[in-house]
């Protein structure tokens, strides 16, 4: 706190120009036009405005994409979900297809914030904010999500697991914007799950974890495990995956996989929790999430 950087969350102090494109093309044009001039996308604002109030960001241009219809909403094409990046968390939560087929994402959304925030916040915003604790990130990562990044030059596709580069840093290049998330259709004999521990019910995670499993009889045919809030980015844990794949499901396998999750991470101590606690509960959460995903895939409760 000093004269130069003292905050006042009663106000929004940074001065900026506000742009409100009607279409995606217009939005991309604005982003391109101001690409070197500290331009930021405003969607829900629940992270961006907070960062602007607490002095972490001072954009010169804000491009409000919240009301661009073509960036919002979910389409199901050939079974796959095409999620517009500015679809709100609340809208996703209301979607029967997500509740029935994408448990990890549904549980992540339900665990997030409160209804008012979920009405404002968008799924793209949650990802682009680049927080290691973003709850939709591990869920969408294990569901094999592919992002569409658009710019005036065109589009490129990137796996979500390659999207996060560090706290607040993503693979987005200047002039680029996350426009769509593509999530595969639900396969038979698959299941997913998301678990998290916060300090209170509506909180940023101390640790969050998501698991996706495909089952072949009593064996794990394929799986993905992602953990958040334990590293500079949400992590996809390949070591656990290679152990689980092909294993016959049992309590012992779950327990071993949980231990591997704990061993694979090196979290820090911060305002929310301690490194030791994060390690300890990552194992517990991993076991529980793996079991839940397994049961959802049609498997029996392991003994």
């Amino acid at each position: 706190m000093n004269a130069q950087n003292q905050t006042n969350t009663r106000l929004l102090l940074p001065e900026f120009e506000y742009l409100r494109p009607e279409t995606k093309a217009e939005a991309l044009h604005f982003l391109d036009q101001h690409r070197d001039k500290n331009v930021h996308i405003l969607a829900g604002g629940t992270d961006l405005i907070v960062k602007m109030k607490t002095g972490a960001l001072s954009p010169r241009y804000l491009v409000n994409v919240k009301d661009i219809k073509e960036l919002s909403g979910v389409r199901q094409i050939n079974g796959a979900l095409h999620i517009g990046a500015v679809t709100t968390l609340a809208a996703l939560l209301r979607l029967p297809a997500i509740r029935s087929g994408y448990s990890a994402l549904y549980e992540a959304l339900r665990s997030m914030a409160a209804p008012a925030v979920r009405n404002m916040a968008t799924v793209g915003g949650n990802l682009c904010n680049g927080s290691p604790a973003a709850d939709t990130a591990p869920a969408l990562m294990v569901l094999g999500t592919v992002c569409t990044l658009s710019s005036v030059a065109g589009e490129r596709r990137l796996k979500l697991c390659d999207f996060f580069l560090g706290p607040g840093r993503t693979a987005l290049l200047p002039g680029e914007m996350l426009t769509e998330l593509l999530v595969d259709g639900v396969r038979p004999d698959s299941g997913s799950s998301f678990l998290k521990i916060g300090r209170v019910s509506a909180d940023i995670a101390k640790v969050n974890i998501a698991v996706y499993l495909e089952r072949d009889g009593d064996r794990v045919a394929d799986c993905r495990v992602a953990v958040g809030s334990v590293a500079p980015t949400p992590l996809l844990l390949d070591s656990v995956v290679s152990f689980l794949k092909g294993s016959t499901m049992s309590r012992q396998v779950l327990s071993e996989a949980g231990r591997m999750v704990e061993d694979a991470i090196a979290p820090i101590t911060d305002a929310r929790s301690t490194a030791e606690y994060r390690k300890a509960i990552s194992r517990i959460l991993a076991e529980e999430a793996m079991q839940a995903a397994w049961v959802r895939s049609g498997g029996e409760v392991p003994r």
Partner: peptide
């Protein structure tokens, strides 16, 4: 000084 990291009990607790 932010409530982000000073959590108060909610109705769920």
């Amino acid at each position: 000084g932010y409530l982000t990291d000073y959590k108060l009990p909610t109705a769920c607790e």
